[in-house]
């Protein structure tokens, strides 16, 4: 393998001086920024450290994780339903899905959060009955039914569903039509085909952008501050309103957001591997065999 051939190319590698220059500039800038944080008289390090593991802050960070996971799960389930509706041949289902996606993508998330948070002001009571008649099965006070955490989850998941529906639809469309035909020819019905044949293959395309959505969702939970959900941003804000250490608590919140987004990126790698099975680019088994095959030649 390492035997020298007389016609081997032995050349002096090309020099890349600009890589070195840019690396030095980057190092200076980055180092300067870190130093400024460390040396600034306006940042009290003791305060940062004190609140980093404060039980109130940790509790709020935990709530942020729960809000993210619940909203994302509900959003993803709704997204699959919406995507199927939009791809269906039923014109009414298609219309409803298009309208839904248009509405929830077309208005700011902040506006939607406030809407669900203050729903009680618009509709003090929620009534289950038949419209335009006196028939009422049951009624609730909106405030009882929708505490701010639930309103927040509703806002985030309904909004997420609209975005994720398009991701799921793209995933389903990416699967070769021959797959559906093969499934049909084997007597599989459309529901079974979707569940067992199309969606598992669509997942390859769906997962990477859904990872993005997951991280966006985690950060968007900060919007729930406006309806008084005590998640991480709201809690650190509340603490700094009392002790006036705004910058320190922003650093604390930023630190935990970074930790959480980093940890939540781990399952993505796992899922990508799992659903990449059988597709050559991701199949390690296949790679080994190819290497072996080459070795034999």
């Amino acid at each position: 393998m390492t035997t020298q051939n007389p016609d081997d190319v032995v050349a002096v590698p090309l020099k890349h001086p600009w890589r070195w220059v840019s690396a030095v500039i980057l190092l200076l800038l980055g180092g300067g920024f870190v130093w400024s944080l460390y040396a600034s008289p306006n940042i009290v390090h003791a305060t940062v450290i004190k609140y980093l593991f404060d039980p109130q802050v940790l509790g709020a960070a935990w709530l942020t994780v729960v809000l993210t996971i619940v909203s994302m799960t509900v959003g993803a389930i709704l997204a699959i339903i919406l995507a199927i509706m939009k791809l269906s041949h039923n014109p009414i289902l298609k219309f409803i899905a298009t309208l839904y996606i248009g509405f929830f993508r077309g208005t700011p998330l902040l506006l939607q959060v406030v809407f669900w948070g203050y729903l009680g002001l618009i509709y003090p009571k929620i009534i289950l009955g038949i419209p335009f008649t006196d028939i009422i099965f049951h009624q609730w006070k909106t405030a009882d039914l929708l505490p701010s955490v639930i309103a927040g989850i509703l806002a985030l998941s309904l909004n997420e569903a609209a975005y994720a529906a398009e991701i799921v639809r793209a995933g389903i469309l990416s699967v070769d039509t021959g797959q559906g035909e093969a499934a049909k020819s084997l007597g599989m019905n459309s529901g079974y085909t979707l569940r067992r044949i199309v969606l598992p293959q669509a997942m390859r395309v769906i997962i990477p952008p859904m990872g993005n959505e997951f991280i966006s969702m985690l950060k968007n939970t900060a919007l729930l501050q406006v309806i008084a959900v005590m998640e991480l941003y709201a809690r650190t804000n509340q603490i700094s309103a009392q002790n006036l250490a705004q910058v320190e608590l922003l650093i604390v919140a930023g630190f935990w957001y970074l930790v959480m987004t980093t940890i939540l990126s781990v399952p993505q790698n796992y899922l990508e591997k799992r659903y990449g099975k059988g597709f050559s680019a991701n199949s390690t088994k296949f790679r080994l065999i190819r290497v072996r095959a080459r070795g034999n030649v």
Partner: peptide
Amino acid sequence: ALQRSEIGMVFQRFNLFPHLTALQNVIEA
């Protein structure tokens, strides 16, 4: 679907399910 299940079809482009092994392809239906 019931009628189709009694008629086998083999396609020009094979159309095997790529996320399943050979055995899983055969036992799925």
